[in-house]
Every structure is written in C-alpha cells, then in structure tokens.
Design a protein around this nucleic acid. Structure first.
Lengths: 231, 231
DNA sequence: AATATAGTGTGTCAAATTTACACCATTAAA
DNA sequence: TTTAATGGTGTAAATTTGACACACTATATT
C-alpha cells in the first residue's frame, strides 16, 4: 500500500519523570544535557522517538540510554503539544512516569553522549529545568499523587521488604501531609494485601520494626472488579 | 536559531470521542469516512495536526471540520503510538474527549470532504471502527467513567435545566449500574452545587418533576482546595 | 548496671458516611 | 373515575473515618 501521508517535519519525543524514594525523600531523575539547545541545563531524561518503535518502546529505550535504567513499568500520563515548546522546531512530547526503588549500589549513568550525567534530585527544591520540563514534572507529580490512593504504586518505590513506618513516610512525602500513625496502619493492614514477614529491620539503634511485603496476587484478587485504571 | 531537528516522516493526528446523552442513552459521535484508508468505514472524528497549531487547538479545529461542533471543552486523555496503527505510515494520535448536550435542533454535519456524514451512535452496540478507534473509544469511556465521580462532567451532557431523575439516569448509563433513588438524591443535594429552580418539567404525561441547574460557581468554591485533576 | 534515646506498636470512642429499604403524591390519559 | 407512570420523601443499621496517648523494646551511652 502506497504511503500518501503528508510529510510534515513533525518530531516526536518522550520525556520521563522517574520517581524514587530515598532517605525519606521523594526524588526524580534529572540529566545534565550535553547538546543544544539548553546545553548544560538540567532536564528530564527525554529524546526523540524513532520511526519504527512504538512510543512505549521508545520510552523504555530512551530512559535506558540516558540513565542506564531498564525494565521499569512506565506509564504515559500526558502529551505536550504547544507549538513553541521546543526552540528549534515543532516537537510534540509524550510524558511518562515510572517509580523505582533507588538502590545505593546501582549507579545511574547515561549510556549515550546526549547527557553528561544523570542523578537523583529531591522533588522539593527543584531547579529550573530545560524546555517546559518543569511543567511536565508538575503534571506528572499531580498524577501520581492522585493515583497513590487507588493504584499500588507506593510499593514500586520501596524496597521489597519494608516497615509500615517507611510506607507511611512515603505516603506523607507524596501527599505532602502528616498522617496519623494508628489510622494509617489500621487502614493499610485492613486491605489485606500486606504480608507480615517473620523478619525484622536490621542495623537500627532502636527497637527494630517488623518487615512487610506487598502481595501483588492478593492485591489483584481484591481489586479485580475495579475499573481498569491504566491509560 | 537554526533548525537542526531530524526530519522524520512522522505524522500527528487527533481523534475525538465526543459523548452525548439523549433519550436516556449515552452516545458518541461517529463519522463515515470519505477517504482511504478505511473509506466508507465508521470512525471517530479525527485528522492530522498542522505544523503551526497546538494539539489543543488542533482538536477543536478538527472536531469542527468533521462535525460542525465548536467550543467544546475538550480534554486530552491518551496518546496512541503503536507503529502499525495506521496502514499508510507512522501516525501517532492524541485522543481527546468532550461531553456535549445533544440538541435536537443542532444538526451535526461535516464541513470538509473528509467525512461523508456525522451522527450520534449509542455506545452500546457500537460497530467495528476504522483503525484502532474501537480501542480509543474504550479507553476514553473508561476515563470518563472514572472522572464522573470527581469532576462535574455530568452537567455538560445534560440540558441546562434538568431533573434529578435525568441526572441519575445519566450516572446509571455511564457507570452501567442501577443506583438507589433516595440515596442518589440525598447525596447530590448534599453537595450544595445544585440550584433548585421554581420551574417544573413540561410536556410529560405524569407528575412533572422539579428542574435544577448546576451552579458552577458554588462547585468551584466547594472544591477549590482539591488537587487539580486536569491533565 | 543504669539510664537515655529513638522509634515501635497498639485500642477506643464519637462522628460522619454509606447503605438498604417502601409507600403515598401528582399528573395526564384512557 | 380509574389507570399508568413517575415524583418525592425518611429512618435505622452498618461501616468508615478521625481524633487521640502511652507503654514497649533495642541499642548506645555513661
């Protein structure tokens, strides 16, 4: 079949808002750009979509190239299509978010030349970012804030085994408000998808807390009747 | 500043899922295509974004050209970017929804040649649509289903003056389940953003119901502290 | 050994919200 | 006048939410 489509000079890109949680603080991944425009500026990891890859595939590839991270569960959340959002031409960008356990070991590091470096930065006190990336970040942050209450996204940010206090402080960081400890625990445990382990926290200089695991099978069993919330 | 961007043959389009409510049924706008590919098929109103218009502007323009409808409050909900979703090349599409009062008078009618006709079709019993439009519709329908509970979208579908029974049957059509009349009314009225009018329904052959209006000012006053849910 | 420190883990009651449930009232048409 | 169709209303039980304080435990310090 012949291709009859108009051949505009339209460019598509992906930008990623990758959240992590470390030392009680919510962080996102930023890169230092190594290309014009906005050379040397801080930006969200993002790049151009190739002709022969779906946008979901592109999101994974681009994140990998700019940060070395793979196999995240990325979720599209908004498309930004203002005419002048890119100084060099028409670029429409699809924004994705993902959540990840920050692992002290695993260094984030660009695989391509497009970025000089990649690093975690607390979401409070973010500097001004390249392009409209500050707006993209805000939109994404609002998105996960809302989803926290009806999607099990918190557990993607925590280590596999976590204490209820860690879980609570994550909720507090995302929602930006204090929660009541007893009510929080009562509620979380009442859902029935947290599995209490026989293990305790280690290396703390105070009474060690019990560790829990998120039981995804139970979760989906409990919520299988809910509407599909993705997309 | 020189344009250095790659010049891929990427095409952007917009597709619209326009909901209406008539005779107790939820409907969407379909067009009959007048162009290859999928000539003569039914499809969502959609077309290609121009170089010099934002995607939000494009959505309004395209909807107008294909259906004659203007000034709807359109809301982006998802971007579809599979490589082979369009048989003639790479086309990424941003999907929008809008809600509108179906007005017996106001005929929907294409302004361009791209569509032969435009018409309302019940969301149950939808035929197979062109491209991946069936999937786009499903995604959009799920979206408004969810939003119904925390955005005042129901009122965009109803006439300015409506009865509580009409409001309830709209909720039932969107959520696809029966609701309890007394509880529904109690709840709706308790919000305080419905204004009871001194008027009654006319032309019915049974006891006429009171008419109500949605008071948007009160609504925003009540919910101004909520998170911004757009985007 | 005693003590200080820091965070863990737990229960109850009041208030608010949600749910289930049925019958008389009104209007127009037959 | 009767029938058909829908409008409009209240209460009680169950569930959920929200407020609230203190004893326990493990380690580090003296």
């Amino acid at each position: 079949m012949e291709v009859k489509l108009p051949t505009f000079n339209s460019v598509f890109s992906i930008d990623c808002v990758i959240f992590g949680f470390e030392a009680g603080e919510l962080k996102i991944l930023l890169i230092e750009r190594n290309e014009e425009p906005f050379k040397d500026w801080l930006a969200l990891p993002g790049y151009i979509v190739e002709q022969d890859e779906s946008i979901d595939d592109a999101a994974e590839r681009i994140l990998y190239e700019l940060t070395g991270l793979r196999d995240l569960h990325m979720q599209q959340f908004h498309t930004f299509g203002e005419v002048n959002r890119h100084p060099q031409g028409r670029v429409i960008t699809v924004a994705y978010y993902a959540l990840i356990r920050i692992n002290g070991q695993k260094e984030v590091k660009p695989v391509t030349q497009y970025a000089k470096s990649a690093f975690w930065h607390p979401v409070n006190e973010l500097p001004k970012l390249a392009f409209d990336h500050s707006e993209i970040f805000e939109t994404g942050f609002n998105k996960i804030r809302r989803r926290l209450n009806y999607q099990p996204i918190a557990f993607e940010l925590l280590p596999e085994k976590f204490t209820l206090t860690q879980l609570q402080s994550l909720y507090e960081a995302v929602l930006n408000k204090k929660l009541d400890k007893r009510n929080f625990r009562k509620k979380m445990l009442s859902y029935g998808f947290l599995k209490e382990l026989d293990e305790k926290q280690k290396g703390v200089s105070y009474r060690a807390a019990k560790l829990y695991k998120f039981d995804r099978r139970k979760y989906t069993k409990i919520f299988q009747n809910d509407l599909n919330l993705d997309k």
